[in-house]
Design a protein around this nucleic acid. Structure first.
Length: 1042
RNA sequence: GCGAAAGUGGCGGAAUGGCAGACGCGCCAGACUUAGGAUCUGGUGGGGCAACCCGUGGGGGUUCGAGUCCCCCCUUUCGCACCA
């Protein structure tokens, strides 16, 4: 070898050596080589979905970051678990297989092999002995096992945790629990209408018992309106639908009722929300989960219906029970059962054809159309309800602005205090009645009722009222002091009769002026209402028509007004108290109760696809589901030649085609509790792609375990406090990260894992984007069709027209996709790693620019030459750089300590780009002195090793070491050596730079000030004037004020 | 519409309230080389011969001192979007 840095020889050489030695394999507790005295560090990458296209430059960004951290943590003496695997079931693999005509098990294996090969070229320090894919029998066997654990569990709302179904049966049998369906179940189980018909468990038929038990299961079969995507041939979870299109592929999605496996994730809504306080996650991600879970506190209240068959009351959910006196009409979703009932048995006022048309139109309206047009539409359904507080008869409408899936699918409309209701009321001329006033409107109303007769004449009232509103608002006075405040206003007006005409009015007395400004504000507000005269104003407020007049709803808090009924009055109460009063009254009179709603829906877990985990479930001839025994897992996918979807509106699962697999016997399927010969049909749905990623981080702790999904000791060691660092893309903020938390919590409740949260610290790497070019008409030009004659100037070659450089996602059509293999071939993996880590902050999205790669490459060449030099006389063609000496160089030593400190701190704070720049500074300075200590260059190599593992290992070896640079302890730095012996202090006069001083870093302030004054340029500037004040920022700057 | 983040040289980016632009690219000059550059050295925000002046999206403010803190506005990106 010569003096050249031959990365293409060095990198494969060391990769092979590390693999041979198992250099980064980590023993588990109890295994040889395990050191229990060391702290653990579980560092996890979001494992990739191996696509046929191979690795993208975005993948190694997060992986390099975790690799640096892991190598660093090992040097700091921690036991590091750093695994890698493959998320390989799911739609994309299946669609790729369909396109290529090759079975997904083959294409997926090929894609995995390719991904592994590509990843290994980066020299990542994964423990490859723990590698697995979600499609491995050994793995999905346990995915199915966990499904059964969830299936055989129920949520005890009193204990706030999941419990085994056996304990539920025990409670039911012993009579400790009422023998009725799950009252909190969201699936449409026929709720035993007469709860009084309490029967004993033993009196129920087996069928009845089964129904009750099933209604409690955390995994249940529900008939629900789901998101059906004909193009993909499967239903999708809510989380997989974005703007009415499928998250994968962007195909249209329609609503369709289907019988599906669901997970009762809603039972965990509150804990999924509350436990976000336990984790160290980006605020934005927490917020997205909070929004997705969407908790709202309010009440359910029944409004009696008159004359509707089968339906005596309409139940609504509201977060503003305090506004119930303003509920002037009701709205139900077009899908609501009441609409259906009225279509069957119309009332005299029901316009059946119109109603039928509206419901049909609403059903066919996609989410997308709904979003585009927010025009309020609706139809009166002919029914009337009674507002239980005002006792007034109010009409019931149906409108698609009320969603069937939220709350009860019905609302009480309070147009004065809800924007949507206001728009609807305005469109259909429904009454709008104020029931909440904030302080100023309250003051207005008070004045309207208490004006003196002479004020009511003409327009004098406007000035008095403006003053009164201003005073009551600024003094925040309670209602019972309004009378006194009004007297104050009148007294002041008597003293200062002249009202300022504008805020800028140059009235001398500031008190008058201040009053003037506030006065004008309120005067403007009053005048903008366009009241004809006092009587008009007074009448508007008297009848609660203020917001109708204003033209918009007021949805804030305030005092209840116009809120007295035959049974109860809440007038004057502040919103929070008014809410409580209404709820209390509703509870005591049996028409309602406090209720918390979640936006989160139960998780649709069935897919009608081939390439996924089969459910360990069979159906008997009576249509009952049965679990496959744990000992008979896994349930393997049948071999199928034809797994292409038929694009259709008929959601028939693909596996149904595999008749020989589907039709089996209880004995063959491994179902207990049925005769072995009983004919059963296997469940033909498969699990969604998310299933495998819900628990892979647990399996990594003990991937070869055949007895359990994870060994107890391994779980308790590696997952104590959860995964210590989890790095991956932000796009999984509500999908994978919510699902995995849910599974983890169920396993926690059932005693299978020991922590409530899976991922303690989460970090999102930014997107690697690329440049693209845009014409004046905003159309895009591929990257290779643009010339750059001058910096910052871009010309489209074909037309000669200037184009604009923009940042865009990498895409094939823009020809700006980067293949990591090409970059590694040209520059090596170490350069690639340094380039990507040096681009900028890890969390920021940043554009790839191949032109810049040469920078980090030059840096590595410089490091190479620091150690190795060409020597034709030597047998190998090289020798150590003769500058390397035994004695340390002092200035290099200080810089080295600075460098170690900065790199260490920057790694800890994920600030890799500034760590790299510091090492470049070192490499720029280190060649300057005549010699450099051998241990100095060695310490640099150790510090650089996590970033550039191959070149440092090679140079470490050439320096004569038999061990690995990656096994070295992290070098210590001495704080005193990180500071310079003398510092240059900036001297300012009146904040302007006037000179510099060289002083000791701890020089006394007065000495620095004296020295500063002595400077010629400073003396000239001061010109004998006295120094009024001076500031010293130690070791940085001195500022003299004259 | 609501919410969050971000706007700094030709480009990527740096900067505990204390010399704006570290470091890298590019560019300029020079060196080595038959040559080349994936080599080396030096320079490089703008204006001015210079002293000096101007510069962190725009406008105000706090401060001895603001890219950094506060208020208003503009732009971009990303979420959410009839959730009662």
């Amino acid at each position: 070898m010569t003096d050249e840095y031959r990365f293409s020889e060095i990198e494969p050489k060391w990769q092979a050596a590390w693999e041979k030695d198992g250099a980064f394999n980590t023993p588990n507790p109890g295994q040889p080589g395990f050191d229990a005295s060391r702290q653990k560090f579980y560092c996890l990458d979001m494992f990739p979905y191996p696509s046929g296209a191979g690795l993208h430059v975005g993948h190694p960004e997060g992986y390099t970051a975790t690799d640096i951290i892991c190598r660093y943590k090992r040097m700091r003496g921690l036991n590091v678990l750093h695994p890698m695997g493959w998320d390989a079931f799911g739609l994309p693999a299946e669609q790729y297989a369909i396109r290529t005509g090759v079975h997904p098990s083959i294409t997926t294996r090929e894609a995995i092999d390719n991904f592994r090969r590509q990843l290994q070229r980066f020299g990542f320090s994964y423990d490859w002995s723990r590698e697995f894919g979600t499609i491995d029998d050994d793995y999905y066997r346990w995915t199915q096992w966990i499904f059964l654990r969830i299936y055989n569990a129920w949520y005890d709302t009193n204990a706030r945790r999941a419990r085994p179904i056996a304990e539920l049966i025990d409670e039911l049998q012993s009579g400790r629990r009422l023998a009725c369906g799950n009252p909190d179940g969201s699936e449409p189980v026929r709720r035993d209408s007469g709860e009084q018909q309490q029967r004993r468990w033993s009196e129920l038929s087996e069928l009845e018992q089964r129904k009750i038990i099933d209604s409690y299961r955390l995994a249940y079969v529900g008939e629900q309106t789901v998101n059906w995507c004909p193009k993909l041939g499967t239903a999708l979870a809510n989380e997989e639908v974005i703007d009415g299109k499928s998250e994968r592929g962007g195909f249209p999605v329609f609503r369709k009722p289907m019988r599906q496996w669901m997970f009762r994730i809603t039972a965990y809504g509150e804990r999924l929300l509350d436990d976000l306080t336990l984790v160290d996650w980006p605020e934005s991600t927490k917020k997205r989960q909070i929004d997705w879970i969407g908790r709202s506190d309010g009440a359910e209240i029944d409004f009696p219906l008159s004359g509707v068959a089968d339906c005596s009351a309409l139940r609504v959910f509201t977060t503003r029970p305090d506004t119930i006196f303003g509920a002037t009409y009701m709205v139900v979703a077009p899908e609501h059962a009441l609409v259906e009932a009225l279509l069957k048995h119309p009332l005299p006022d029901t316009d059946v054809p119109r109603l039928r048309d509206y419901v049909a139109a609403a059903r066919n309206r996609s989410d997308l159309e709904r979003k585009e047009s927010r025009e309020k539409t609706g139809v009166f359904i002919g029914a009337y309800a009674t507002n239980p507080f005002t006792k007034q008869r109010i009409p019931v409408w149906t409108a698609d602005y009320v969603l069937a899936g939220y709350g009860t699918g019905a609302i009480m409309a309070v147009p004065a205090h809800d924007e949507r209701d206001f728009e609807f009321a305005a469109a259909f001329d429904l009454p709008i009645r104020d029931v909440v006033y904030p302080r100023p409107v309250l003051a207005m109303r008070y004045y309207a009722e208490n004006a003196q007769p002479e004020e009511a004449e003409g327009s004098a009232w406007i000035d008095v009222m403006a003053d009164f509103m201003g005073l009551t608002v600024t003094s925040d006075c309670p209602l019972d002091q309004f009378a006194g405040q009004l007297r104050v206003v009148r007294a002041r007006r008597a003293e200062h009769p002249q009202t300022p005409q504008s805020p800028a009015d140059p009235a001398p007395a500031t008190a008058v002026n201040r009053r003037g400004s506030i006065h004008m504000t309120w005067r403007d507000a009053i005048e903008s209402m366009n009241f004809v005269d006092f009587a008009d104003m007074a009448a508007t407020l008297h009848h609660g028509g203020y917001y109708a007049r204003l033209g918009r709803a007021y949805s804030g808090n305030g005092h209840a007004v116009n809120s007295s009924g035959p049974d109860i009055s809440i007038d004057g109460l502040l919103t929070e108290f008014a809410k409580n009063a209404v709820i209390k009254h509703a509870e005591t009179s049996g028409i309602g109760a406090a209720r918390t709603q979640f936006k989160l829906r139960d998780w649709l877990f069935s897919r009608q696809r081939y390439w996924g985990e089969p459910f360990p479930i069979v159906w008997d001839e009576r249509g009952h589901h049965h679990a496959v025994a744990e000992s008979c897992l896994p349930v393997r996918l049948p071999e199928m030649a034809d797994y292409a979807p038929e694009e259709s509106d008929d959601p028939r699962p693909l596996l149904a085609k595999a008749a020989a697999w589907v039709n089996t016997t209880a004995g063959d399927a491994g179902v207990r509790g049925l005769p072995a010969g009983a004919a059963v049909r296997r469940e033909t749905n498969t699990m969604p792609g998310w299933a495998g990623s819900c628990w892979y981080y647990i399996r990594f702790a003990d991937p070869k375990n055949n007895e359990r999904f994870v060994g107890r000791a391994a779980e308790q060691y590696w997952l104590r406090d959860g995964v210590d660092l989890y790095i991956g893309g932000e796009e999984h903020a509500v999908l994978h990260l919510l699902y995995a938390r849910f599974w983890h919590k169920v396993l926690f409740d059932l005693g299978e894992v020991s922590t409530p949260e899976p991922f303690r610290k989460l970090f999102h790497q930014g997107l690697i984007t690329s440049f693209a070019y845009q014409r004046a008409d905003r159309s895009l030009v591929p990257m290779d069709e643009v010339d750059t004659p001058r910096d910052g100037e871009f010309i489209e070659r074909a037309t000669g027209q200037p184009v604009r450089q923009i940042i865009a996602k990498m895409s094939k059509s823009l020809k700006n996709v980067i293949n990591p293999d090409d970059i590694i071939a040209s520059y090596g993996a170490d350069t690639f790693r340094l380039y990507e880590m040096g681009m900028g902050p890890l969390e920021a999205s940043k554009p790839w620019n191949t032109r810049d790669i040469i920078g980090p490459h030059r840096f590595l060449q410089r490091v190479w030459r620091l150690v190795v030099t060409q020597d034709e006389d030597s047998p190998d063609g090289w020798r150590l750089n003769p500058r390397i000496a035994q004695a340390r160089n002092d200035s290099v030593e200080r810089l080295l300590h600075k460098t170690i400190k900065k790199v260490q701190n920057d790694i800890e704070s994920f600030s890799f780009h500034t760590a790299i720049s510091q090492m470049i500074v070192f490499s720029n300075e280190a060649p300057k002195p005549d010699s450099i200590g051998r241990d100095q260059i060695e310490r640099l190599l150790v510090v650089l090793a996590p970033f550039a593992p191959h070149i440092t290992e090679e140079l470490w070896q050439r320096l004569g070491h038999a061990d690995s640079v990656h096994a070295q302890p992290w070098p210590a730095y001495d704080e005193t050596l990180t500071r310079d012996a003398t510092v240059e202090v900036l001297v300012q006069v009146n904040g302007k730079k006037r000179g510099h001083l060289l002083v000791a870093p701890d020089a006394a302030d007065h000495d620095v000030i004296d020295a500063a004054q002595a400077l010629e340029a400073v003396a000239k500037e001061i010109a004998g004037r006295p120094i009024k004040k001076s500031f010293v920022a130690k070791g940085r700057l001195v500022n003299l004020i004259v």
